[in-house]
Design a protein around this nucleic acid. Structure first.
Length: 129
DNA sequence: AAACTGACTGATC
DNA sequence: AGATCAGCCAGTT
C-alpha cells in the first residue's frame, strides 16, 4: 500500500535549521528511559521532523553532552553499527546493562515488556502509555 | 556544482 | 526470514 503521500503530520515546508533541529533531537533522545529503545525514525518524528531519520545520527554526533545514544536503533530493531565493530559491541553492552535483551545484534525485548511484539517494542512519546 | 555517502525506512520478492 | 530497492535529505567530497 502507498502509505504516506500526505507526509504525516508535520511541516513539509519548514526551514531546516540545524541548531534548532539538533536541540529537538537531543531532547527526544534524552527522554528515552533506561531500558527502552526508540528507532531513528521515531526520534525524528517525535522531534517534529518526520523523514529525517538519517539526520538523527548526525545530530547525536554533534551533541556536546553525552546522550543515551545506545537506546536509538533501527526500525527493524537491529543495531545500526557494523556487526562486531567497536561501537556495535559497546551499544550491546550498554543496552544489556539496562536489562534490554539483545540477540545477534537485534533487540528482542526491553525491560518494559519482555516478549512483546516488535511494533510495541519501540518506545515513543506518542505511543507510550 | 554534481556526485557520492550514510548510526534510515517501508515495500517487494 | 533475508536480500534488494527506491526514496529519503543534509553533509561531505
Amino acid at each position: 500500500m502507498a502509505v504516506q503521500p500526505e507526509r504525516c503530520v508535520l511541516k513539509q515546508d519548514m526551514k531546516y535549521d540545524r541548531e534548532q533541529f539538533d536541540r529537538a533531537i537531543w531532547a527526544v533522545v534524552t527522554s528515552i528511559p533506561s531500558g527502552r529503545v526508540m528507532s531513528y525514525g521515531a526520534v525524528a518524528s517525535a522531534a517534529g521532523y518526520p523523514r529525517y531519520s538519517r539526520m538523527v545520527s548526525k545530530a547525536m554526533t554533534r551533541s556536546p553532552r553525552k546522550l543515551p545514544w545506545h537506546r536509538v536503533i533501527r526500525s527493524d530493531s537491529t543495531l545500526a553499527f557494523a556487526v562486531a565493530g567497536e561501537a556495535y559491541k559497546k551499544q550491546s553492552a550498554l543496552l544489556r546493562k539496562e536489562g534490554v535483551k539483545v540477540v545477534e545484534g537485534k533487540v528482542t525485548a526491553t525491560n518494559h515488556a519482555v516478549g512483546m511484539d516488535l511494533d510495541q517494542l519501540l518506545w515513543g512519546p506518542a505511543t507510550d502509555e
